[in-house]
Write a protein that binds this DNA or RNA. Structure first.
Lengths: 335, 335
DNA sequence: ATGAAAGCGCTAACAT
DNA sequence: ATGTTAGCGCTTTCAT
């Protein structure tokens, strides 16, 4: 049933070595004649090399692992596309999993990937397994940390500039005449993403002549209160708000709903700018101004960096910061 | 550097066989004492079995491959979640790829998966590689075809009832007083999904006393015309339309935009029902009535079926049809 | 209850 | 230009 390299060798009347050489493009030293015979034998027997055996011998699998927090987000789907395209181009396959931001699951999956001898991993870390991350760096396991930062970790890191993205968003609101701008984020002090977007928010206020007493930050603890409820509460308690910067598009959808229910006009009474750009942003009513992150590039750059590391065995941590841009639509028009 | 089963054996003062047995839970015949010593050695050496070697020997990798058309869609992200949860539960890992509905790429990826000795695949087929699919069935390669049907293929198939979903959508429009209902779909005669949704549309019209002369079907050929343009053209040429059934949510977003630009009120003048349910459907203005497909279950059932097949080696094709449901919102309210 | 030895399918150093 | 041989790390008969 299973046809092996030995079968091909027999059929072609040569040794396994010769077949192996031709298979791997080392036929500098082969007669056209033998090459032809081997290729024919492969064709006739429909031989397909067993990657397991190859990997066991060569200590390389040409598989990389990718650990995401969740698949359910256009952003990650697009990152994955970038990773996939790069991997295909360079001859790698992908094993995938999602941690759901659960550190134990994250560790379990990483261990699994290691046992499967993946050549390296791309990971959006929970940021809660510091010891594990450092162990991986220690043993020089090729790894690219994406999207989030892990403090003091001596590893490759590819992120999008969240401070800048948030700054652009909030600066845009202020420059367009908004005076009381609030920021909404999920509460999670371990995830650099949210923290940095809030930092960008603060920076924009300060740069526009406001002081820290003007900061209006809503950090939503999903365990304690629903997103919707916390928005309602905030808006009721802060009737002077005329601009909102939302760090996440699930929150944004809730904000749209709440404001409509409260009969607050967007953008006349309250302007909105949101992370991230999505398929539906331009179709909302009013169309949504967004901070677009270069998700595809994030995937592409990360995969490329990982594979370079695998192939060159160089490990000086590389820190790459990609830039987002602002897509201005109607939700942030002048009042 | 690398610690192998031999190192553990040495450290514990036993043979590799014994370590292997304990590793795989075959310690019916082992002293508590040896078991303990081996476990300790594993712990101390931080030994992790090499799955490649294991797979090479045992002819099982506990990896399945999944071939999608694209990741960029909540539907597929959710399917993937179902697959992942099931795989984790049953001890399998996932290799992933997307074909972009390109049959050559699809074949390339399947071959790759075979060489990597995946135990089986879950595939949303382009439906254009009939010969390949049949070859896989022929060699009894465990495979579950999902979401789409392939004519005359003797393989497992898990789909959602598209005729029924479309019927429910259109019947709902008609029962709520709409008289002239059109259907929008991508033009692709190979993909059963679109074909069946149009069939459901026709069935609903007939069941409500209309004849085939009342069918208004727009099949959009993306090569020839933009989605938006084809919607505009149709609506201009058919001013009597008062209901639209959209088979795809990208088309739906464009429909919303066009109707707003043409100042046609939803749902007063035109009602809309759309595939699929998404995060944003309830936040559109007006909120969108959708046909929800059990995506998570689709993933779960498919993965379970695949793994059962792998483990039991039974191959009588299993045809599973899951049922969608209708989520009624404002976009389809009575005129 | 434990071990020795063969071998899964491939590659690569070392012949020839 | 091609072949011989020795493993890669594991499981699995078959002994003991």
């Amino acid at each position: 049933m299973k046809v092996t390299i030995g079968d091909v060798a027999n059929k072609a009347g040569v040794s396994k070595t010769t077949v192996s050489r031709i298979l791997n493009g080392n036929f500098n030293h082969n007669t056209e004649e033998t090459k032809k015979r081997v290729l024919e034998a492969i064709e006739e027997l429909k031989y397909r090399p067993n990657s397991l055996a190859k990997g066991l011998k060569s200590m390389r699998t040409n598989v990389i692992g990718i650990v995401l927090s969740s698949f359910k987000n256009t952003f990650w789907a697009t990152v994955l596309e970038g990773v996939e395209d790069t991997c295909r181009e360079l001859g790698y396959n992908i094993m995938i999993c999602s941690s759901g931001d659960d550190p134990e699951l994250e560790e379990e999956y990483i261990r699994e990937f290691q046992m499967r001898q993946v050549d390296g991993i791309v990971i959006n870390p929970t940021a809660l397994n510091t010891k594990l991350y450092n162990e991986l760096v220690e043993i020089k396991f090729p790894m690219v940390v994406i999207n989030r930062k892990v403090n003091d970790l001596h590893a490759h890191n590819v992120v999008v500039d969240n401070i800048r993205g948030a700054f652009m968003a909030v600066d845009h609101l202020l420059k367009n005449g908004r005076k009381h701008v609030a920021a909404f984020a999920y509460k999670n002090k371990y995830v650099s993403t949210w923290q940095e977007r809030l930092e960008g928010y603060r920076a924009a206020l300060l740069a526009n002549g406001y002081s820290s007493s003007n900061f209006k930050i809503v950090e939503i603890d999903k365990e304690e209160i629903s997103v919707k409820e916390s928005i309602i509460r905030f808006v009721e308690e802060n009737p002077d708000i005329d601009g909102i910067f939302s760090t996440n598009n699930v929150i944004t959808l809730e904000i749209f709903e709440v404001l409509k229910e409260m009969n607050l006009k967007i953008p006349e009474e309250i302007a909105i700018v949101s992370y991230d750009e999505t398929d539906w942003a331009k179709h909302l009513d009013p169309s949504l101004t967004t901070v677009r992150q270069p998700a595809y590039d994030l995937g592409k750059v990360s995969a490329k960096l990982l594979i370079d590391t695998i192939q060159s065995k160089k490990f000086d941590p590389n820190k790459v910061i990609l830039q987002p841009d602002l897509i201005v639509r109607k939700s942030s028009s002048k009042p």
